[in-house]
Design a protein around this nucleic acid. Structure first.
Lengths: 384, 384
DNA sequence: CAGTTTATGCTCGTGGGACGAGTTTAATGG
DNA sequence: CCATTAAACTCGTCCCACGAGCATAAACTG
C-alpha cells in the first residue's frame, strides 16, 4: 500500500495492457501503437523480462527487415483463475497476461446445493493455489445472478438465496472479483468479440429473463455495488404483471419462455430456456404468433435502450439470437420503429455475440485489467 | 500532434485536475490527496507558475503550523468560453482553471431564429477571442436538444430543425464542445452538486419531456455520437401514443405538462413548462389527480432506471422537484414499488439538484477536463 | 513575550525512465 | 554477395519524482 512512485511502471503497464487486449501482438506493433521510441521499447521489454512478466519468441518474418518478436506471458509470470458458474456446471481456466486460457476444466454439478457447489469451487481455488503458489494473484468468478459487492443477491436460474461468494477464496487471501455472467460476456464481446473497437456498446443476453450491460471503452457500467445491467427489470411491459424481482411490468416477463408460455396459454414452464427452444422448433401458427410477440417486445426494448444510450453497436446473445432469427422482419420493424427518428438513418447494428465462453473470458479480462495496473505490477516486482 | 513525452506533465495534470474539481483547494491539500512529497509539490507548483498555469495566494491560517497557499488560476492562464443556450435567452462565462466563472453575461434572444441566435453566439465568441487572444482555448456549449457530433438533431423547446453548431466557432479555429443541457447539468451535479462523490450517479431533469444522463465518476455516458441520455424516449408509457421523436409510448409523454393536459382533458399546451407550474398551483381535485398520475409515472420510471444502473444517488432537476414535492407519498410508493426487492433495503436517495447554473458549469467542467490533460498542457507550454 | 510545537515550504542530491541519434542485426531480393 | 529494409541495441541527455534535512510562519504555552 506504499504510494507507488509516480510513473514508475507507467509504460510497462501500457505494454501489458496492450498484450492482454491483443494476444499475440508483436513487440514492434506495441511500440508503434504506444508511439514508443525503439530505445524505450528495448528498455521496457528488458525490464519486463527481468521481472518475469513477459518472454519473447521469434515472430514469423513478414517481408524484408529484421524480424520482430511475439510478446508472450512469462512461464513464471502472474496468473488469474477464472471461474464460470452455470446452472448445471462450472468451468475454469488459468489465464496468463497474454490472455490465453490454460488448464481448462469443465465439471457438472453433482449436487446443486449452494454450499456443495461453493465448496467445490473453493477446493479448486486451493488446488490452483497449490499448483501456482504466489503466481496466482486473483480469482475472477462469473455467476448467473445479481451480484452486489461479491454477494449473490438473487439467482433465478440457480434458485439460490442470498449468499456470500467470498467463501470461495476464504483462507487463501486471494482477492475475489465476482460478476454477473451477462455483464462479463459483454466485456468479452466488447474487447475481442462482435463489439470490438466500439466506444459504447450495449450487450443483451436472454436465458431466463434478460441481462446485459452497457460498456464504455470495454468497461462495464457496473453501478454502485456491481448490480448494474439489470435491463430486464425496466418497466417496458404490462404493469399489471408482477415480477419475481418485486417490481411490476418488467421487460423480463415479455421476452423469454415465460412470455411464450403465457401467449400460448400454458402455465409457467419448469425450464423456460428449454421451453423456448421447443417453441422455436414448432411451426404452427400459434407458436409463430407467440414468437412474433416476444420478438416484437425484444426489438422495442432494444430500441428504447438505444435511444437512451446511443451505442455504436448492440450485441445479443443466448436465446435472443434464435428468437430474432425466427422473426427477422418483426424484429426489424419493432427495433427501427422504436428508435428516435434521427437514429433511423443508420441505426446501430444488432449483432449476434460471437464468443461461446464469454463469461469466462470476460472474467479473465477484468481480472487482467487489475493485474496490469501500475500498483499491481509494482507489488509483483516488490514481492519477488 | 507530436507525441508527448510520456509522464512529462503527469503530475502537473493531476494537480490541475484537482484544482478544477475542488476550486479554492490549498496547495497542501493537493499534495495530501495526490500523495505528493513536499519536494514534488514545491517543484510542480513552481513549474506550473513558470508556465502561467497557476498562481498562489496566502491561505487563511488554520491552526498551528506554517500557513499554506490557495492555488488559483494564473491571470495570464488559459480560459474556456462556456455558453448556455436556452429557449428564450443565453448565458456565457469565461472559465479559468480553478473553475471560477468570470465575465458572466445574460442576454435574451431578440429573435429566436436559429441563424440569428447562432450569429450572436459567434460574435460573442469572436469578441472573447479578441479579448483573450491565445488564452482562449476552447468553446463549450450547452443546448436544450439532442446533440450528435456537434450537430443539433432535434430541439423541441427551441423548435429548431437539424443544425450544425460548429458555425459558432467557425473561422476562429477554436475547438467546440457541444452538449445536451441536461447531460451537462448532470455533470455539474456529479462534480460539485448533490451527487458529488458518487461513483455512479443518475441525473434526470424535466422541462418539456425528460432528459438526463448516467454519470460514472463524474463522466457522462454520452454514447457513440453524444446523443446518450435520452431517457425520455424509453417505452415506459402507453404504446398507443406516438411521440414527436418518432417512437411510441415514450416516458416523455407521461411526465410533463403534456401529460397533465391530457389527464385534465385539455389540448396540448403551448408552453408545457408554464402549464405544469399552473397546474401545480391549483388545489382542486382534478389537478391533484393529474399530478398524482404524473408523479407516479416519474417514480416508476426512475425505479426502472435504478434497477438498470444501480446508481449511488439519483438527482432530479427542473419540474421534477416541485412535481415530487406535490405528491411525495405517491412518489415514494411508485419509486420503491418499482425497485427490485434487494434495492429496497436502502434505495438510492433521489435528491433535488442544487446548481441553478448547472448546464453552464457542466459545460465548463467538460472543457476543463480537456484542458487539464497532459497533451493540452504540453501544447500550452509549447505555444508560449 | 520568548520558547515550543506544528504544519508547511524549500534545497539539493539521487535515481529511474523516456527519448533520440547513431549503430548493429537479421531478414528479403536481385 | 551486396543493397535494401525493418527492427533492435547502445548510450548520452534530460526531466521529473522522491526523500532527507533544513528553513519558515503561524499558534500555543507558561
Amino acid at each position: 500500500m506504499n504510494p507507488v512512485r509516480r510513473g514508475q511502471w507507467q509504460t510497462a503497464s501500457d505494454v501489458l495492457t496492450q498484450l492482454t487486449r491483443q494476444p499475440g501482438i508483436t513487440r514492434a506493433a506495441v511500440a508503434r501503437t504506444l508511439r514508443l521510441s525503439t530505445g524505450s521499447a528495448t528498455e521496457v521489454t528488458a525490464r519486463l523480462r527481468d521481472v518475469h512478466l513477459v518472454t519473447e519468441v521469434p515472430a514469423p518474418s513478414q517481408g524484408r527487415g529484421r524480424p520482430t518478436t511475439l510478446l508472450r506471458a512469462h512461464p513464471q509470470g502472474p496468473v488469474v483463475l477464472a471461474l464460470d458458474l452455470r446452472q448445471s456446471s462450472w468451468r475454469s481456466a488459468i489465464v496468463t497476461l497474454d490472455g490465453s486460457l490454460q488448464d481448462p476444466e469443465y465439471r457438472r454439478h453433482r449436487s446443486r446445493r449452494p454450499q456443495v457447489v461453493l465448496n467445490n469451487l473453493r477446493r479448486h481455488v486451493e488446488q490452483a493455489r497449490q499448483q501456482y503458489g504466489d503466481r496466482l494473484r486473483m480469482v475472477s468468478l462469473a455467476v448467473p445472478g445479481t451480484i452486489r459487492d461479491n454477494h449473490l443477491m438473487q439467482a433465478p436460474t440457480l434458485e439460490w438465496a442470498e449468499l456470500d461468494l467470498e467463501t470461495v477464496t476464504e483462507g487463501t487471501g486471494l482477492p475475489l472479483l465476482a460478476g454477473n455472467d451477462a455483464t462479463l460476456s459483454g466485456v468479452a464481446e466488447a474487447r475481442t468479440g462482435a463489439a470490438a473497437g466500439a466506444g459504447t456498446a450495449l450487450h443483451l443476453i436472454i436465458e431466463v429473463g434478460i441481462g446485459g450491460t452497457l460498456l464504455i471503452d470495454g468497461v462495464p457500467a457496473q453501478g454502485a455495488s456491481g448490480a448494474g445491467g439489470e435491463y430486464g427489470h425496466m418497466p417496458f411491459g404490462d404493469r399489471s404483471r408482477a415480477c419475481p424481482c418485486g417490481a411490476r411490468g418488467c421487460w423480463d416477463l415479455e421476452i423469454d419462455g415465460r412470455a411464450l408460455a403465457r401467449h400460448l396459454k400454458q402455465g409457467r414452464p419448469d425450464d423456460p430456456y428449454a421451453y423456448t427452444e421447443e417453441v422455436l422448433r414448432r411451426t404452427d401458427r400459434n407458436a409463430r404468433a407467440a414468437v412474433t410477440k416476444v420478438v416484437s417486445a425484444l426489438g422495442l426494448g432494444i430500441a428504447g435502450l438505444v435511444n437512451a444510450h446511443d451505442p455504436d453497436v448492440v450485441t445479443i446473445g443466448g436465446l435472443a439470437i434464435p428468437l430474432r432469427a425466427a422473426a427477422q422482419r418483426t424484429f426489424k420493424e419493432a427495433y427501427e420503429g422504436g428508435l428516435m427518428t434521427f437514429h433511423r438513418g443508420s441505426p446501430p447494428p444488432v449483432l449476434p455475440a460471437t464468443l461461446p465462453d464469454g463469461p469466462l473470458r470476460g472474467a479473465a479480462a477484468l481480472a487482467l485489467d487489475q493485474l496490469t495496473t501500475e500498483p499491481a505490477i509494482a507489488a509483483w516486482v516488490a514481492q519477488r
